[in-house]
Design a protein around this nucleic acid. Structure first.
Length: 855
RNA sequence: GCCGGAGUGGCGGAAUGGCAGACGCGGCCGACUUAAACUCGGCUGCCCGCGAGGGCGUGCGGGUUCGAAUCCCGCCUUCGGCACCA
């Protein structure tokens, strides 16, 4: 096809100016109520939840990374006829507000609420369809009063209780969070004082009650890593609880007989127990320690308090411990074994005491080596049931089906598993043991010695002890004026107005609880509150909760894989047991995004100074480009260091979509082929090719949206726009296939880049004299499979696994036809040089052919 | 340390048992322009070769397979979490 016309100068079309169109459409959408959800109509409901932000002050690019693809999902689902509910709120209690208050002498509420106001404004710039009518701010008494109400219900149901627990304590600043304890020296971040451990009475929620149920993921779709991490976090182990007794002391001063319970996953190794270890915090340590050992043991126990749990559990760190100068009696054989105290045993796990079997446990082995303790093998492979006591250079921990007990008295010779059960059975008959299950999961410590949180609604009465605040007196308000007095200690503890309160029972003077709740309480039910944020007579609206939850899809950062995502499941089960909700799980599906790090590869935070502000990028390129770039950067679940490199390419793409839609006939002076169809295509072929490209793109893009593969979704739309650019200015441009392609391109792009597509859609309609309606109210288009099909395809041909040629065959060619085409290829004939392939492999239904030639 | 993820051109990444490097950035060349920018077109993993073509190549070392970025075993590096940051 020859080009007869001179290429004319590019038509002057109006420039793509996001700053001019974006605010206009955002205002229009608000008028239209595009973001509003009719909650009374739960037909085709789609509750889309995104983790509410902490109001740190500014929205940064990381918030956009989480929120804008979520908005694209919302818009995509609306185009599928769903009634989408996409609420937003603020996780407004927590440490940073207090830090700001202490440092800058600002009221935490003022600091928080001014940040909220700023972030509301910034969130609106995304062009996201958040339903602001549903907004929840957790530091609002109308929200946190219900935390208190739930707490009272938990208390009544026996799900909340009080117990002593150690905190990191600074003599000047009180309880410290982990991040406030600095360095190996463990010093206070504010005053530099040495941090101690202090035992405080604190509030717990009895969530271990749900441990087994939490291991059942059948009603919640988690990404595999999250499911695995939660499973490991809960850490169910089966085994036995075995009762050892303290032996009479050597000097005869103590008769012995104190019970020392141990938990073991390996009761089969009981005959190999050569010593016993108590956690430094174990209550029997003080009781059993021999007088001459007391000084050393006390010193060790003090030292152990300085180590973090992570350090204590490290398998790399050299084992430490001291003998307490007392023995225990192994119930299975009456042997006396020495008792040690060592920090690799934790008070909070199992019974806080272990029987040590160095032959079959790595940590015990290491400890035995260090202290010259005997190692006795009691389990061996069935084929070689001989003791290797002297020869063992490491613990034999392998636990297969094919092992037998040795050196185990009457149990010798039994298969290990069976032997373990037999030993527990025998002990049970003696009243010295029983089968047991232990979990790594601990009850939820909700007490915080802080001001900026939900006050725990109880009163301490000298006569009646702990008295719940009567429901009618809720909320227990945080005092508005707060004096930090320049220290980190919870100011509630010196606020006499807050503290002094009459006992609800007898009216006598009593004192309020000053601990506040963990902010993970706030985030454990906020999606229920979104459904009725201003409800006065209860925390949630049971009918709406029933109609709209479990949440269809929850999106948020992968850093919450265990804690928040587990606490909220626990909370839901507690609410269910109180009869408040009818569901086992809060959400049906969860997707975890990766995290956007600062340009330095570190977590974005104000203190590091690596926060990327999106405002500047929005000014330069517009919200659509920023949204699309964040989706295009890489897989959504991956995240990575922030870099704006490449954002220009995305902006160029939008400019090309603009030009294609408004000016299909333009010919680029820089393109030597401008206005001509691709070689080998007549007009009919070109029209079919364009249509095939359009519908293949639609098919793939639809699948990508559904799988949240936004990066490849954008890539495929870029490809389609490149194809359209190739046909721009040709005889095909502006024709029905072209028109369909542009229409579908805009529809496919609409969820991701809502403003530019709305603008172009409006102009298209106007150009055709049709009445305006929003592109975001259009239906998602249907794929025409017949059009997407191609008539021929290329089959790569390998010889011994290396691609050497490609043959083109009809799309419906069968294996025999492909084989014939392959063997007819001159290049393949030349490579075969007369040899016959030993095997011909047709892979993936004719996707590829591999000729295997030996010799 | 323990649990989980990731490692592919100069860069972000695509391909999850079948053509490695889609798409984009950057770079080079060209068109347009008085010029530059913008815009448009072409090329662009590395090495050898004028070319046709050949060799190498997905963190490292092994293995399974006709065929491995993808599965298995053993490492290394890095990121997230480890219960009071949210």
């Amino acid at each position: 096809m020859t080009q007869t016309q001179e290429p004319k100068e590019r038509t002057r079309i109006e420039r793509y100016d996001p700053a001019a169109i974006e605010p206009r459409w955002q205002a229009r959408w608000e008028e239209l109520g595009l973001h509003k959800t009719d909650l009374q109509n739960a037909r085709d409901r789609y509750y889309l939840l995104t983790m509410y932000p902490y109001p740190s002050g500014d929205i940064h690019i990381g918030h956009w990374y989480i929120k804008t693809p979520t908005d694209a999902i919302a818009r995509f689902q609306r185009m599928h006829g769903k009634n989408v509910f996409l609420p937003i709120g603020f996780d407004a209690f927590g440490l940073p507000a207090e830090n700001a208050a202490i440092r800058q002498k600002i009221n935490p509420r003022e600091w928080t609420m001014s940040n909220v106001a700023n972030m509301r404004r910034q969130l609106r710039q995304m062009g996201a369809t958040f339903d602001w009518d549903a907004e929840v701010v957790t530091c609002d008494p109308e929200y946190y009063r219900w935390n208190q109400w739930f707490f009272l219900k938990f208390l009544e149901a026996g799900l909340a209780y009080r117990q002593k627990s150690a905190v990191d304590w600074c003599p000047n600043d009180g309880t410290l969070a982990r991040e406030q304890v600095e360095g190996a020296e463990r010093r206070c971040w504010r005053c530099g004082a040495k941090v101690e451990k202090r035992e405080l009475d604190q509030w717990y929620l009895r969530v271990t009650k749900y441990a087994d149920e939490l291991l059942d993921f059948s009603e919640i779709q988690f990404p595999d890593p999250v499911r695995i991490m939660q499973t490991n976090w809960i850490g169910r182990s089966e085994g036995g609880e075995i009762v050892f007794e303290a032996a009479p002391s050597a000097d005869g001063s103590r008769p012995g007989g104190e019970e020392i319970r141990v938990f073991t996953t390996r009761p089969d190794t009981l005959f190999g127990a050569t010593f016993m270890v108590l956690a430094p915090e174990h209550p029997l340590v003080a009781e059993l320690t021999a007088p001459e050992r007391r000084a050393e043991v006390a010193a060790y126990v003090r030292e152990a308090q300085d180590a973090t749990e992570i350090e204590r559990l490290s398998t790399e760190r050299e084992k430490t411990g001291v003998a307490i100068g007392a023995d225990a009696i192994n119930p299975v054989n009456g042997e006396r074994i020495p008792i040690f105290v060592a920090d690799y045993v934790l008070a909070g796990y199992g019974t806080g005491a272990i029987m040590a079997v160095p032959a079959h446990d790595e940590r015990d082995f290491e400890f035995a080596q260090r202290f010259g303790l005997p190692v006795r093998q009691v389990v061996a492979p069935a084929g070689a049931p001989v003791s290797r006591d002297a020869a063992m250079s490491q613990a034999y921990v392998a636990h297969s089906d094919d092992e037998v007990l040795i050196n185990s008295g009457e149990f010798t010779g039994l298969p290990a598993d069976e032997g373990g059960r037999a030993i527990v059975g025998w002990l049970e008959a003696q009243g010295k043991g029983k089968p047991a299950v232990t979990y790594r999961l601990r009850d939820w410590l909700i007490s915080r010695q802080r001001y900026w949180g939900t006050p725990i609604p109880v009163i301490h009465c000298p006569t009646h002890g702990i008295v719940p605040v009567p429901e009618k007196d809720l909320p227990v308000l945080l005092p508005d004026t707060v004096d930090y007095a320049g220290v980190g200690v919870n100011p509630l503890t010196r606020d006499e107005q807050f503290l002094n309160v009459p006992c609800p029972i007898d009216g006598e003077p009593a004192r309020r609880e000053t601990d506040t709740m963990d902010t993970f309480i706030d985030s454990s039910w906020y999606w229920y509150r979104y459904l009725s944020p201003r409800k006065q007579d209860g925390p949630i609206d049971p009918e709406l909760v029933e109609a709209w939850t479990p949440v269809e899809q929850y999106t948020g950062g992968a850093e919450h894989a265990v804690m928040h995502l587990l606490y909220a499941r626990e909370f839901t089960k507690m609410l269910r047991d109180l009869g408040l909700v009818q569901q086992n799980e809060p959400w049906k599906r969860v997707f975890n995004q990766g995290q956007i790090l600062g340009a330095d590869g570190e977590r974005m935070s104000k203190s590091r100074g690596n926060v990327q502000d999106p405002d500047e990028l929005v000014r330069q390129y517009g919200a659509d480009t920023v949204r699309l770039f964040l989706m295009f950067m890489g897989p959504w679940d991956q995240g990575g260091p922030w870099s704006p490199t490449g954002i220009g390419g995305v902006h160029r793409f939008l400019n090309r979509v603009w030009a294609l839609t408004l000016d299909p006939h333009a010919r680029e002076p820089g393109d030597p082929d401008a206005g001509t169809l691709p070689e080998g295509q007549d007009e009919t072929a070109a029209r079919a090719a364009l249509r095939a490209a359009t519908h293949r793109t639609l098919r793939d893009v639809t699948a990508d949206y559904e799988a949240f593969h936004f990066n490849t979704m954008v890539a495929k739309l870029m490809e389609l726009s490149n194809t359209l650019f190739r046909y721009r200015g040709t005889s095909v441009a502006g024709g029905p296939e072209w028109d369909e392609a542009v229409r579908l391109l805009l529809l496919m792009l609409a969820p991701a880049a809502p403003h530019i597509t709305e603008e172009l859609w409006a102009r298209r309609l106007a150009a055709r004299g049709e009445a305006w309606s929003s592109i975001h109210r259009e239906s998602w288009p249907e794929v025409d499979e017949a059009a997407a099909r191609e008539s021929t395809r290329e089959v790569p041909v390998q010889v011994n696994g290396k691609v050497r040629d490609r043959v083109t065959v009809p799309a419906d060619a069968d294996a025999a036809a492909i084989e014939a085409a392959v063997l007819a290829s001159p290049r393949i004939q030349q490579l075969l040089a007369g040899r016959t392939p030993d095997r011909i492999i047709h892979a993936g239904g004719g996707k590829l052919v591999n000729l295997v030639v030996r010799g």
